[in-house]
Amino acid sequence: MASGGKKTKIEDPANEDLKAESPEGEPTMEDQQTMFLPTDVTLKVEGKLFHLNKKRLSENSPVFKAMFESDFEEKHAEVIPLPGKKFREFEMFLTSFYFPHLIRPITEETVLDILPLADEYQVHHIKSKCAFRLDGMVINAKKNILTPKPFYDGCTMQNTTT
């Protein structure tokens, strides 16, 4: 395959990861509205606490919404333990949607940790971003498999006979 081939750039039209910050790097109105939300729920993961806002969680997750609005025992609990979850993974999951001023993009390194939580808590816009990232990874893997590489990795053979 010739190196002059056209490269395909994949763009995520729904990617809002960079929209949370103003051009000057100052917090946006959305940042200010969520930075100062009252923390009215605490989630406990591996003994560490996340102090969060029920409304913000409910806006993003129908699972959290049901937990806080239905007759589940968690509705009135001060601290809600989430057994079986890993702190680091749950933190990555939260930073993919909860804090607009801290939103981190979903990368090849984080997608497999975030996707199961996005699926479990039905955070559909994060599941879509994960699916997009996985699609990009598959396309890149296919390109790497199908692109022939030089055997000597760019080394040239020299004529040793004079």
Score class of each variant (00 low, 15 high):
residue 16 E to T: 15
residue 34 T to R: 15
residue 144 N to E: 13
residue 3 S to E: 15
residue 78 E to I: 03
residue 112 L to F: 14
residue 63 V to F: 03
residue 160 T to A: 09
residue 16 E to G: 14
residue 20 A to R: 10
residue 129 K to A: 13
residue 81 P to H: 04
residue 62 P to F: 02
residue 144 N to A: 13
residue 42 T to S: 02
residue 8 T to H: 11
residue 105 P to C: 00
residue 44 K to S: 13
residue 92 M to R: 09
residue 63 V to D: 06
residue 71 D to K: 06
residue 6 K to C: 07
residue 69 E to G: 00
residue 149 K to P: 06
residue 43 L to P: 02
residue 3 S to G: 14
residue 91 E to Q: 11
residue 157 M to L: 15
residue 40 D to I: 02
residue 29 M to R: 08
residue 87 F to R: 00
residue 20 A to I: 07
residue 148 P to Q: 01
residue 40 D to L: 06
residue 152 Y to T: 14
residue 93 F to N: 08
residue 36 F to L: 10
residue 113 D to A: 14
residue 109 E to L: 08
residue 34 T to W: 12
residue 73 E to M: 11
residue 155 C to D: 12
residue 85 K to I: 04
residue 155 C to N: 14
residue 23 P to G: 02
residue 77 A to N: 01
residue 157 M to G: 09
residue 140 N to R: 15
residue 157 M to A: 15
residue 45 V to W: 06
residue 135 D to V: 14
residue 122 Q to G: 07
residue 108 E to R: 11
residue 28 T to I: 02
residue 93 F to V: 03
residue 94 L to S: 02
residue 78 E to R: 01
residue 100 P to D: 02
residue 18 L to H: 11
residue 137 M to P: 01
residue 17 D to N: 15
residue 78 E to P: 00
residue 51 H to M: 06
residue 149 K to F: 09
residue 103 I to L: 01
residue 146 L to S: 11
residue 2 A to Y: 09
residue 58 S to R: 06
residue 85 K to S: 07
residue 18 L to R: 14
residue 15 N to I: 09
residue 4 G to D: 14
residue 125 H to S: 12
residue 114 I to A: 02
residue 91 E to F: 08
residue 153 D to F: 12
residue 23 P to N: 04
residue 100 P to M: 02
residue 102 L to P: 02
residue 160 T to Q: 13
